[in-house]
Amino acid sequence: MRHFDHLTDDARRRLFWRAPEPFSRESPRETLAVALGATLYMPATRPRLAHDLARRASQGVASSVVCLEDSIADDELPAAQANAIAQLRELAQAGGGPLTFVRVRTPDQIPQVVDGLGEHAHVLSGFVLPKFSESTGAAFLDALDDTAATHGLHLWAMPVIESPEMIHRETRGDQLLAVRALLDKHRASVLAVRTGATDLSGVYGIRRGRDLSIYDVRLVAEVLTDVVNILGRADGSGFVVTGPVWEYYGGNERLFKPRLRQAPFQASDAEDLRASLITQDLDGLIREVVLDAANGLTGKTVIHPSHVPVVHALSVVTHEEYVDASDVLGRDAGAAASAYRNKMNESRPHRAWAERVLTRAAVFGVAEPDVGFVDLLGAGDDW
């Protein structure tokens, strides 16, 4: 699969200075974790789940999670699990879809799902492990590794940091250090670390509004900072940490002014696109994705298809970023002015940043010098 393959060849040639490269579930972990992009969650109760996954893949969705956890009522769980297995078998028989993970509740569901899929288990990329902590994590990871070995598969794990121990100040540090040690033992199986802002907020009876970013909710923002600090280090010991869910879609009454400047949309003759983004409350998502990147998070959990093109357009590397990153990696030491003549590039402090930029450039491409976010977003058929 390849990002932006849903666009026409002419559109890709016009937008990209360097086109996105193909990837698959067999790609190196560092590549695949970044390629997840906007990971679309769907409840396992959807009656046409296989059809929906295939359709969304054709529209640019590269990764998805079939949820058997919080989105499913307790009395619906057996039927939801049976439906997930049946639908994923159907998806495999139809040729597959996006990278697909199942979010389970308990470790014993991992072998149950894989056993149920049988010869079609290859359709599954792995499992999302909820409420991950020192006390729960080992059982999930052991179940995943044992199941993978039994069936001759490689299954990726994506643990979610969202339990009360992670937001309570007196336990968070020790818990994250213990989780880091646990994940390091299973490093070959861990694709990325996800963050559960909804559950973390719920511990204190908080739900952030559509006019706010998660970084305005200080209790949760502090957790995200610590997760990146301990689990997302760029020294080879860390993992890709993904951005938390944006849970709003559809228009509603607004308290604050829109956050999107008019000038970039006017320059691209895209005022209607700006109005559509504001109507759907996607200006808040845009701001949060930018803040995610600034705080060391990559990709995002989303719950509506309209979120996907926003996240992916913001994931494309700008020509300026690419030139600066290449310059940094091309020198052993010292500093030099950017070719864009607006900043200094220093080889040592900017090296890890530059390496990450080039990884993102491989999977999301590099935009033409005169192409920006508005052009990338407006090129699709989603608006």
Score class of each variant (00 low, 15 high):
Leu7Gln: 03
Asp9His: 13
Arg14Met: 07
Arg25Met: 04
Glu30His: 14
Val34Tyr: 04
Thr39Glu: 02
Ala50Leu: 08
Arg55Leu: 14
Arg56Leu: 11
Ala57Ser: 13
Gln59Ala: 13
Ser63Tyr: 04
Cys67Val: 04
Asp70Ala: 05
Asp70Ser: 00
Ser71Cys: 09
Ala73Pro: 01
Glu76Gln: 14
Glu76Pro: 00
Asn83Pro: 05
Ala84Arg: 02
Ala84Ile: 05
Gln87Asn: 09
Leu91Lys: 11
Val104Thr: 00
Pro111Ser: 10
Ser125Lys: 01
Leu141Asp: 03
Thr147His: 04
His151Gly: 03
Ala157Leu: 05
Met158Tyr: 04
Glu162Arg: 03
Ser163Phe: 08
Pro164Ile: 03
His168Leu: 12
Arg169Lys: 05
Glu170Ile: 03
Gln175Ile: 07
Leu182Lys: 04
Ala197Leu: 04
Thr198Cys: 05
Leu200Asn: 09
Arg207Lys: 08
Asp216Met: 13
Leu231Ile: 05
Ser237Glu: 11
Gly238Val: 03
Trp246Cys: 01
Gly251Val: 08
Gly251Ala: 14
Ala263Glu: 15
Phe265Cys: 10
Gln266Phe: 06
Ala267Ser: 05
Gln280Tyr: 06
Gly284Ile: 03
Leu297Pro: 09
Val302Thr: 07
Ala313Met: 06
Glu320Cys: 06
Tyr322His: 15
Asp332Ser: 10
Ala333Asn: 09
Arg341Asp: 12
Arg341Gln: 13
Glu346Lys: 00
Trp353Asn: 06
Trp353Tyr: 10
Glu355Lys: 09
Ala362Ser: 12
Gly378Val: 13
